[in-house]
Simulated scan of single mutants.
Amino acid sequence: MNNTFSPNKQIGVVSTFSELVHTDFKGEMNALCWYRNLDGDFKEIVNQLSLKENITEVFPKDLIALQVSEKGNIARETILNDLQLLTDFGASPSLNLLKCYERDDEFDFIATDVYSWHVDRSPIATDTFLCTYHGAASDIVPNSEAEQKIAIPEIRAKLKELHNGPEEEFEDFLKENYFDLHYQLHENAQPINLGQMHLWRLAVDHPKQQVQPCIHRAPKENEGEYRLLLIC
């Protein structure tokens, strides 16, 4: 499986890592894709790795220790190269074998887990990089097709009840609990699946950001299938 998508105003498509990291976001474009058709057997890698918890970090030494076929070795070399490229760029990539993320079911009217449509925020200028090598892939959606949940009157009213404090502290309360990062899609929204093997760069909310942060979510995992995800 290697999903394809139609080019649009939100997504820029590049053909090298250098283009991926040096192309500026602008206008409505807040997602960049290094589009790749890779030949490796990533499923073989996943089948040989051991899941110790719902999310297990996989290190280069773990990959190097695997006994794999020629196709498996191509997959391994691809992953190791991606980790090295990102590390050399100054990022801190993590390779995760995952069964599922933790769900946030504390409130029935708003969730703050990664399965909810959300944006990432950072105090420093940075971006989110991710690549799904195996399993279900993440989704993004144009900012024009979603709205902040805290702007929806009924949700905002419930959050004010939950806050139960001075009005002037309400906005800080929303930020401290990450409620302001989460979005609800419009009825006609058309999410875009990021597919497997492509390396993505998504815009993050930070003080120097020139574009809107990219709204995205983790997918519901496929039954009986682990995801192999690079993220930083």
Rank of each mutant, 00 (worst) to 15 (best):
T4C: 02
F5G: 02
V14A: 09
T16F: 04
T16A: 04
F17Y: 10
S18T: 11
T23F: 06
D24F: 03
D24K: 12
E28M: 07
E28V: 04
M29A: 03
A31Y: 01
Y35E: 14
N37C: 04
L38R: 14
L38M: 12
E44S: 08
E44H: 10
Q48C: 06
S50T: 12
N54F: 02
N54Y: 03
I55Q: 10
T56P: 03
P60V: 08
L63D: 09
I64C: 04
I64N: 06
A65S: 14
V68P: 04
V68T: 13
E70H: 11
K71E: 14
N73S: 11
A75W: 03
I79D: 11
L80W: 05
N81Y: 07
Q84K: 15
L85V: 05
T87P: 10
A91V: 10
S94H: 12
L95Q: 11
N96I: 14
L97P: 07
L97S: 11
L98I: 15
K99A: 14
C100A: 14
Y101W: 15
R103E: 14
D104E: 13
D105N: 15
E106Q: 15
E106C: 12
D108H: 13
D108S: 15
D108N: 15
F109T: 00
V114P: 00
S116C: 10
D120A: 07
D120Y: 05
R121W: 03
I124A: 12
A125W: 01
A125M: 07
D127Q: 08
L130I: 01
L130S: 06
C131F: 01
T132G: 04
H134T: 01
H134W: 11
H134L: 01
S138L: 05
S138A: 15
I140M: 03
V141S: 04
P142M: 08
S144T: 15
E147Y: 08
E147T: 13
E147N: 13
Q148T: 12
A157Y: 09
K158H: 00
E161K: 14
E161H: 07
P166H: 05
D172M: 02
F173D: 02
F173P: 01
K175D: 00
E176I: 00
E176R: 04
F179T: 01
L181T: 01
Y183S: 03
Q184W: 00
L185M: 06
I192T: 13
H198D: 15
L202H: 01
L202D: 02
A203E: 08
Q210G: 12
V211A: 13
Q212F: 14
P213K: 12
A218V: 13
E225G: 03
E225W: 04
I231Y: 03
